[in-house]
Design a protein around this nucleic acid. Structure first.
Lengths: 352, 352
DNA sequence: AGCATGGATTGAAACGATTCAAAAATGGTA
DNA sequence: TACCATTTTTGAATCGTTTCAATCCATGCT
């Protein structure tokens, strides 16, 4: 109704006409360039207010060839850890006048490539990528187009990109060493996806500690898809095997949840029968009885470091590559204890 | 390197030159308009591939005056419920060639307004809004600009917008009636924010059922901010009051989590001492011992309905307003039971 | 051969901002 | 008053697409 054009919203031209100035002047007011006389600027502002004018960000992006939009590609967002990362990114973006465009890869390299391509075609100024187990095609695309990007969490050795991650190997090494020091000898590591770099790093840390100490890895159980029955069977088999584990490490919250369910169903108690430790702190760790020991990610620090990396690269594309490694923190709780002398009593009680 | 311009990526003009056709033809190939001869189309496609050409979505948006971006404004994303909604939206958006731009309001009306304004200025084609306790300014803005929008979950009575929500009043009525039928007489409802419409609807349902049956509401405890100590004190006071509740309803997962912590700390057992019921199914409901009864949101159905509404309005701005109401489902579990005859024994055992 | 017919192709005009060289206004001085 | 130096202001060009009237070119028909 305000606009001269039948179709749409008021444009900078409408503002200019109403204020009786040129579009250039309106633009100068809009961008606070400064060489506009005070009374005229006031007029222009009044006109903008009267029309309810909002600058068309698309036109701005085209002309400036910078969109002030950052793309974000994650495997999923229902994981508390990824959701928390996102919240920090959103906060930082808002503060610095960026918007976030988020796509999900569902852990599928081909889908990731398609979704990232969509982001690029939307002219994002930069990209935050939480890779899949094989992001090579995606990374090649990003490198070819020289898109500012930062890799988060599942960091490959790719030397073309900035990266922020925790030292998975070290965290797992220390957690394992801790268990071994408590007297555990047979260890079970439960993994979501053994193709992920993070997982491989953790296995390396796990193995190194086990090799150094007098312990052995009973099994690496892997739950890649959502077939819970098969997964439960695998875990049960490991628990009943010839060398039953006295400690279990779950590689993330979802796995930890599934593990707890299985342990409950099998009537296995913790820490009496097995110690339990979870990577990637679940919100419900503290309300377990006994509460769950966890390896906590420094979520905010990760997100802040990643954002800083990305902004640096957006502003200085040729900046030297930076790889930031943070540390997960072991949060002790009652679910981890020394193994009981257990030959005296049956290990698996009947269900309930 | 490919582009004729020193600055940037290959444009449609570069493709046209390389293929020896006009930009119009390239555009026709790009958009599969159809009136391009097969060999020529092949040439053009080859040229695009050779240059690694991706159309500039910003320019497309400007010219088409449609961005194929949908804005999404939610209070937060670390709630499992909101995260799940987002995942469905992302899936649907990807399927239909849209991208999502997500901003967070943190439940603050002023921030919501600013963030939504940012989205509008980015020319989103439509908006999905999960309102705060007072979204009137935001809704006025959306109405004034006639932005296609759909309200989700915390739906006000605003008749200017499409809306999708569950029948909070009914869900709460039925849950409360169920508790009353089991013999509960003193009920406690624990709320996050008593200013939200959802909360008010639930209180209404709660009150109606309590009024109809022979029950009373002991207290509505409210945790608006994160002051856990004060909250715990409130809950403890309610539990120790002259009419101790025999059943508790937590209004969402976060509250339920806090409740469980408090009950544990006070040594209150469920369902022996109190029955516990949670709105908004927490992922950990099933691994509580005993497991938690919940009122489950039909998350996917909500998201699909909201998306359908929005698409309809984007395509037919004048369509008749639609308000969709879905139903939460009561999932029974051991945490809800008939109240015990309790005068025989002390209700609150010493802590651990 | 001449002429419709209709599909393929072209290219200039938008879309709504920013930018910047040039023009205009302003103010200070001689 | 005339002149110069600043500060304001203007408006055309530009960003990379889509769109569409106009043109071109085969083809078949008389």
């Amino acid at each position: 109704m305000h606009s001269s054009k039948a179709s749409g919203r008021p444009t900078i031209l409408d503002v200019a006409k109403l204020a009786g100035v040129s579009v250039g002047t309106v633009s100068n007011v809009l961008n606070a360039v400064g060489n506009v006389s005070a009374p005229r600027a006031a007029h222009v502002n009044a006109a903008m207010a009267q029309l309810g004018y909002l600058p068309n960000g698309v036109a701005q992006s085209l002309r400036r060839s910078a969109s002030r939009v950052i793309g974000l590609c994650a495997p999923l967002t229902s994981s508390a850890y990824f959701a928390a990362l996102f919240e920090v990114f959103e906060e930082l973006a808002a503060k610095e006048g960026y918007e976030l465009m988020q796509v999900l890869s569902h852990g599928d390299p081909a889908l990731e490539l398609r979704r990232v391509r969509a982001l690029l075609s939307r002219s994002v100024d930069g990209l935050i990528l939480i890779p899949t187990h094989d992001s090579v095609p995606t990374l090649d695309l990003l490198a070819e187009r020289a898109t500012p990007a930062v890799l988060v969490d599942r960091v490959t050795g790719d030397r073309r990109f900035d990266a922020v991650a925790i030292d998975d190997r070290k965290a797992m090494f220390e957690a394992t060493a801790h268990l071994i020091a408590l007297g555990h000898r047979n260890l079970l590591y439960v993994i979501r996806d053994n193709r992920l770099v993070t997982t491989r790093q953790r296995i390396a840390g796990f193995s190194a500690a086990a090799a150094a100490g007098p312990a052995r890895i009973v099994a690496n159980v892997c739950q890649r898809d959502a077939d819970n029955a098969a997964f439960a069977a695998q875990v049960a088999a490991a628990l009943r095997g010839p060398q039953p584990p006295t400690a279990i490490i779950a590689s993330n919250s979802a796995i930890a949840l599934a593990m707890i369910e299985i342990l409950r169903a099998l009537g296995v108690r913790w820490p009496e029968d097995v110690s339990v430790l979870a990577f990637d702190e679940p919100v419900w760790a503290s309300i377990m009885s006994p509460p769950l020991a966890v390896l906590r990610h420094p979520t905010r620090a990760i997100a802040e470091a990643a954002w800083a990396c990305l902004m640096r690269r957006v502003n200085t594309p040729a900046a030297r590559r930076r790889s930031i490694v943070l540390e997960a923190r072991f949060i002790a709780a009652a679910s981890v204890a020394a193994p009981a002398a257990r030959d005296a009593r049956p290990r698996h009680r009947a269900r309930r």
